[in-house]
Design a protein around this nucleic acid. Structure first.
Lengths: 145, 145
DNA sequence: CTCTCACCTTAGACATAATCTAATCTTCGA
DNA sequence: TCGAAGATTAGATTATGTCTAAGGTGAGAG
């Protein structure tokens, strides 16, 4: 991903392109495994230790607010982040907690009547179950010990 | 909700019907505002202070695993729980974090080919944006102070 | 060029959420 | 009634995220 392109994206969103903010954005664009904030913090500083924990969180929040990054729902545990490239859905494994991408397809939107005055920013499909690693080899027996 | 019915549900799932577990399940079936674990803990003990924090968490996890309760994705913040009555979708407010129900409607399932060996348990739609309270009265100006 | 102010970053304390530990208690079936 | 598996407990511990107060930085005004 081009340096200029990232800088442009940031500035178009009214965010200064600081070393630390650039590093977070760049990392997210290169890594599609839905890293947690802690993973991003660690990765960014492994290369060049110049970003504090608070800054990493601040920048992630800024990027989410600007719409450049989205938070992936992964209940209970640490929030995971995703530089929104092409659209996709998510699969969350009940057992190991991994979040995987699923191919995108159009979703019917909620009826306007049921939304009322709410303003929709984003719609995400979450499929839950057992991932390839955790799925049983044989039929049935899904929920045994 | 009938005592026998809850007891039955628990035992059908291989869980003993203990005082504490019953209290959690019963509370969730009576309250549909997606309480957090902390709220459940507090509510259960307000009636009859006989459940420790750890037990509340243990029981919630047991119930989720048994499929009697589901966790509602609300990233970053405390997990919220929902005794799965009728199906519905969820709306999460960006600003205040509230989780509201949206009317249920069928969702197209992911293509089998894209799932591979994964086992699907549940599919949920998450809509994000601003709730009725937080939505601006007038157009634009969404992010001002 | 340099001043300035809004924006950013920082370390560490703090707050909140959830799990772990090790001991004890309960319950169910034999 | 007994024993073992399953549950519960208080409190420590870990994980995650936010806040605070102080200082740094850079883009535009002059």
């Amino acid at each position: 991903m081009d340096v200029q392109e990232i800088r442009q994206k940031l500035e178009d969103s009214g965010l200064r392109c600081t070393t630390q903010r650039y590093a977070v954005m760049s990392f997210l664009m290169d890594h599609h495994e839905h890293p947690t904030a802690a993973e991003i913090y660690e990765a960014v500083n492994r290369v060049d230790p110049r970003s504090s924990r608070a800054t990493t969180y601040n920048n992630l929040n800024d990027l989410v607010e600007a719409g450049l990054v989205r938070q992936v729902a992964s209940e209970g545990r640490a929030a995971r982040y995703d530089a929104r490239g092409e659209q996709h859905h998510h699969f969350i494994c009940d057992r190991c907690g991994n979040v995987e991408d699923l191919d995108w397809y159009e979703l019917p939107q909620p009826a306007l009547a049921s939304l009322g005055r709410r303003v929709v920013r984003d719609t995400e499909l979450i499929v839950r179950g057992l991932c390839t690693q955790c799925a049983p080899r044989r039929r049935s027996q899904a929920q045994n010990s």
